[in-house]
């Protein structure tokens, strides 16, 4: 992480600033550029090239594809080759270069279209910086996310489209792999737990990073896994107790086969006995299989496996911590 405060301040000073002043596109909306676009995109929709077909759909005539809006405001090859266009955007890019963020990749685009452009329309655009993130390690490299808002208007000053645009500016060669794309491929999801009315409270609590134990409201006996009735006194009344998170390894296995794409192998599956007395099946983390022993003290950690699943896992407590 960068510790250069003055650099951070200089960067954050760009947030809220207009980095590209309202600038008119080089050419009015025209058939040649539309044709070039739809042919390149392999788009056969007739409303882009056939005035009669466009009129048959209630339009005045040929329209430009809405996703082409930005193309009308691009500054062209000559200006591109001449270098940056000057102004605040150049200053921002120079500052990012200074920080080593010389590579760029677009990550998100949210484009809202207010009207379709017709032949002869003139489009302009301005761009304002909405946010610059702190430095982050990504698959492609160490970098910062830069979010800007572009507003496109026509010759009558009507807003044609608004685009929220996020790019990652990163340091080349600092990624996790020479093949970043493969690295970015998401791992398969863990198998879904079979959630029902009797155990939902337990998984809901896990999502809030609370490990709860079901307790009989009549006799006070703790039980796990969750169930509708107390095996001790058969009462259906229950409440919960929040576990301290301390426990010991009661038993464990090292799974090698069959591999499931959600897991890394060898996979440590353990029965952990909680300080409160109940046991649960879980995974051990931060330890090699050879170093696990029965009775080993372990402490709760939370695994946010995916947006829909949070599970408790346990890490050995070091001697120092004991």
């Amino acid at each position: 992480m960068s510790t250069d405060t003055s650099y951070e301040e200089r960067l954050q000073a760009f947030v809220g600033r207009e980095v590209i002043a309202r600038r008119k596109g080089q050419d009015a909306v025209n058939q040649a550029m539309i044709r070039h676009w739809v042919e390149a995109m392999l788009d056969d929709n007739p409303i882009y090239t056939d005035a009669e077909a466009a009129r048959a759909t209630g339009r005045n005539g040929v329209v430009a594809p809405v996703t082409m809006t930005q193309a009308w405001t691009m500054r062209g090859l000559k200006a591109h080759l001449a270098g940056t266009g000057g102004g605040a955007m150049s200053e921002l890019l120079a500052l990012l270069d200074e920080g080593g963020y010389t590579s760029v990749v677009a990550t998100d685009s949210d484009f809202e279209f207010h009207r379709e452009l017709e032949i002869g329309d003139e489009v302009d655009a301005d761009e304002v910086v909405a946010a610059i993130s702190e430095e982050k390690a990504t698959g492609l490299g160490i970098g910062r996310f830069v979010t800007t808002v572009r507003t496109y208007r026509d010759q009558h000053d009507r807003v044609v489209a608004v685009q929220n645009w996020r790019t990652l500016r990163f340091k080349p060669g600092t990624g996790r792999s020479a093949k970043p794309a493969e690295e970015e491929k998401p791992r398969a999801l863990r198998p879904r737990p079979a959630i029902n009315l009797d155990n939902q409270f337990w998984f809901d609590a896990a999502k809030e990073h609370r490990l709860v134990i079901q307790r009989c409201a009549d006799c006070g006996q703790l039980r796990h896994p969750p169930g509708p009735a107390c095996p001790h006194c058969q009462s259906f009344d229950w409440d919960t107790l929040e576990a301290s998170g301390e426990g010991t390894v009661y038993s464990y296995i090292v799974a090698h086969h069959p591999p499931h794409p959600a897991f890394e192998y060898p996979l440590l599956i353990a029965v952990v006995e909680l300080a409160e007395g109940t046991r649960l099946t879980t995974n051990l983390v931060g330890v090699e299989p050879a170093d696990v022993t029965i009775g080993m003290p372990v402490r709760l950690e939370w695994l946010d496996a995916d947006p829909d699943l949070t599970l408790p896992v346990f890490r050995p407590v070091t001697e120092q911590e004991q």
Binding site: D43, N45, A54, A56, T67, D108, D110, E112, F113, A181
Partner: peptide, 20 residues
Amino acid sequence: TAWAGPNARVNRVKIRLGVS
């Protein structure tokens, strides 16, 4: 629009880019 046909108008396209 290939699915919806030429009558359709596109109001919004919101995408996240993943792999190249």
